[in-house]
Nucleic acid binder design. Structure first.
Lengths: 151, 151
DNA sequence: TATTGTTATACTCTATAACTATA
DNA sequence: TATAGTTATAGAGTATAACAATA
């Protein structure tokens, strides 16, 4: 039963330093994005234009934090704010072309890092890994209130 | 090609909120340990008696932080300090019986959580998952736990 | 001169509370 | 009354710098 080893590896992966290291590798060279604003930008890319509240639910942040990081990304020219036509209280956050470019750059970097990290495994192993990882996540992680998409 | 889904799942796992949620599940009910001191206690359990500097290297923290958290754990009665016989500058950190008990409790909790999260997967799948995860970690993480450390 | 442990300081991140506007 | 966005404030976490003691 390799449960003990899985536990140790997951624990290592979650160590603050290792998490920050991975985020730094992803965002290095992308101006205006760091390890704290990355989830906001990435979430916006996944969800499409969304309000700060919805985005906050999606990535598990407080909505005040989402607003502040959105402001930072806006000042960096990666995100824009626009009034919601249906609800005058709401503000829709969207990616600018520069923001889309930044997301694309980081996605490419992530896939390249992953491809290299998985290069010593067989395709069947990788497929099994992905399958179990998905189940593990479904069991470990609380579902966001938004619910429709997490991946 | 499940690389994209792996990337998304890993990203979700590393989200600050999800990481904190997992740590909270582990440490809930264990007095004197929280999501910040958990890695220190866990690292001490893996490494055995160690100095603050060595422990800091092991878990990727600054040594000033390791010292402060060790003080907190000491005040909670989970860790003791003792002079190093070989080096008068050094202080050796050790687990108290209460500290060992706390580690055991958290390990059991982690294994139980994992066992449930993996209960829908076949043993062969889990074995493959563990194998690929290990390779992934070796490639992704700068200094894996258990590696030789600088003094 | 370098290293260990520690403390002091400043900075960053995050949540709670409060305010405004709209539903 | 409730909700969206935002700002203000305070609390916690962390790193940098500095100190004394020892190598």
């Amino acid at each position: 039963m390799p449960a003990e080893q899985i536990a140790a590896d997951l624990g290592a992966l979650l160590l603050r330093g290792n998490r920050a290291h991975l985020y730094d590798r992803l965002t290095e060279g992308v101006v205006g994005v760091d390890s704290t604003t990355y989830p906001v930008l990435s979430g916006l890319a996944r969800a499409g234009p969304a309000t700060a509240s919805r985005l906050a639910d999606l990535i598990g942040l407080d909505r005040t934090v989402a607003t502040r990081y959105a402001t930072r990304l806006e000042q960096a020219g990666l995100v824009t704010r626009a009034a919601d036509a249906d609800d005058a209280r709401a503000t829709r956050l969207s990616l600018t072309p520069e923001g889309r470019q930044a997301v694309q750059t980081m996605r490419t970097a992530l896939e390249s890092i992953l491809a290299e990290a998985l290069s010593t495994s067989e395709p069947e192993e990788i497929e099994t890994f992905a399958r179990v990882l998905q189940r593990l996540l479904d069991a470990l992680v609380p579902a966001p209130p938004g619910a429709p998409l997490r991946r």
